[in-house]
Write a protein that binds this DNA or RNA. Structure first.
Lengths: 251, 251
DNA sequence: TTGTATATTTCATATATATGAATTACACTA
DNA sequence: TAGTGTAATTCATATATATGAAATATACAA
């Protein structure tokens, strides 16, 4: 567990993630086994989740299962962040076309967070875990996201990042950043090779603006050489797919 | 806060519910105000949720907002519990037709839990809070749900409930219960007037079987006299709406 | 009905978290 | 640049939670 995370909070999501992955009712003992919790701790937590209405318990089988109130916590988000388009279909389309790892990210503090990852089909593919984060300043997805913001906002963020870090090699060179942003805005996409992730190339594009100042980014990533070789087709397909997303009607 | 609920668990959902209701980025101070948390407690929790990837932080505005990972926790549930039909539209349709309070419940232990509540349009309407629970044995929605289970399961549940209660007036009369189940199965709906809720009448129907043994129930509820007066039309409309739901194609 | 195995609950204690006051950081204005 | 107001962080202490062992409950088979 990451340091400085409240244990119960981590466990709440651990339980919900387990159900999301298993998609079946589970007993307390099964949940304990999967998540390596002490029995009485898990029991207290599960009872809390039932009292709060987020888990249901079948009193005959003693199996727990999430309630639809879990769905209600998050079902309102896609429309605000993604609009009416079918983003998942778009990601699948990119995946079918390229065979590479397709990712959807959203900005989070000084990082980009991977929301959705569709793994590449090649033996050598970019491997990223959903939920993982990556720096916002030195990556294709980060630059693509920053390019959607005002120059003023970007400058404030860079200054804040520089205040926070003590290591000189982590400092953001604002002039270099500005140039990259310019290129990104001009091209409508960002390419990055062998940067934060070794041997990895990525081409990133911002999605049509969300209703909030949290523009999401889609990226195609994989072995640098392969991405470079196919860059023209990848960029073309991404442009088409993102354009289509922005012009889909409410379904 | 309900007794015996872990404080942090309650607060995790409190934060997510706040965002679901507000649908806008919020600062830590705003969240503190809305939820009445001490600042340092809320800060620790918010930082945990960010570390876990469920909240995002805009470092310029210092505003938090949920990430799409919250959506992923619950978006898989409706298909398993409700099938492919558009249940919300069905509830809206019933609401337009009857003007009464429409509820969607799922079973939880020895109770039925209200997942969705569309308030009635009459000055005197049934008022129920989403998340609230009601006993499974003495209510229209409870009987409707139990009627979808085997006689054996129902008997075990009743015995378990009777073991648990000490009050004789709360004991389940298994013969009365069996008769009510019979009537429910025969009619395809359940009516109850002036039972657990004073002056309240309700007509309940089970939804087409979910893929799990957790059949949900829809109910029309309101002032007993009004429900009685309109019972024929209500039952007819509910039958039609529920049938249509069970025969909708994958969209 | 009795015995056995597994699940659930209880309890004393160790560890984690919550709290409010104090301190530090940051943004904005003059 | 300096001052002010607000936000964020830190810290000592009180309270809540986690834990593992023990006790109790439940289900099932003989």
């Amino acid at each position: 567990m990451p340091k400085d995370v409240i244990k119960s909070a981590d466990r709440v999501f651990g339980v919900l993630e387990l159900f999301r992955d298993q998609q079946a009712p589970l007993t307390a003992t099964e949940i304990c086994k999967y998540l390596s919790y002490p029995k009485s701790s898990a029991d207290a937590l599960l009872k809390s989740l039932v009292s709060l209405g987020y888990l249901t318990l079948d009193s005959n089988t003693m199996r727990y299962f999430p309630s639809l109130r879990v769905t209600q916590l998050g079902e309102w988000l896609p429309r605000l962040l993604l609009g009416e388009g079918d983003t998942l279909s778009m990601l699948d389309e990119l995946h079918k076309f390229t065979g590479e790892t397709i990712t959807l990210c959203m900005p989070n503090g000084l990082a980009m967070q991977f929301i959705t990852v569709i793994p590449g089909t090649f033996p050598i593919s970019l491997t990223i875990r959903e939920g993982q984060t990556i720096p916002i300043f030195a990556t294709a997805v980060g630059i693509a996201q920053l390019a959607t913001r005002s120059t003023e906002d970007i400058q404030k963020l860079a200054q804040r990042a520089n205040r926070r870090t003590t290591r000189t090699d982590e400092r953001v060179d604002i002039d270099v950043l500005k140039a990259e942003i310019e290129t990104a805005r001009s091209n409508g996409y960002v390419e990055a090779y062998d940067r934060v992730l070794t041997d990895t190339g990525a081409i990133a594009m911002a999605l049509p603006m969300s209703q909030l100042d949290r523009t999401l980014v889609v990226a195609v990533g994989g072995l640098s050489e392969r991405i470079k070789t196919n860059r023209t087709q990848i960029i073309q397909k991404m442009r088409q797919a993102v354009w289509q997303l922005g012009h889909s009607e409410a379904s």
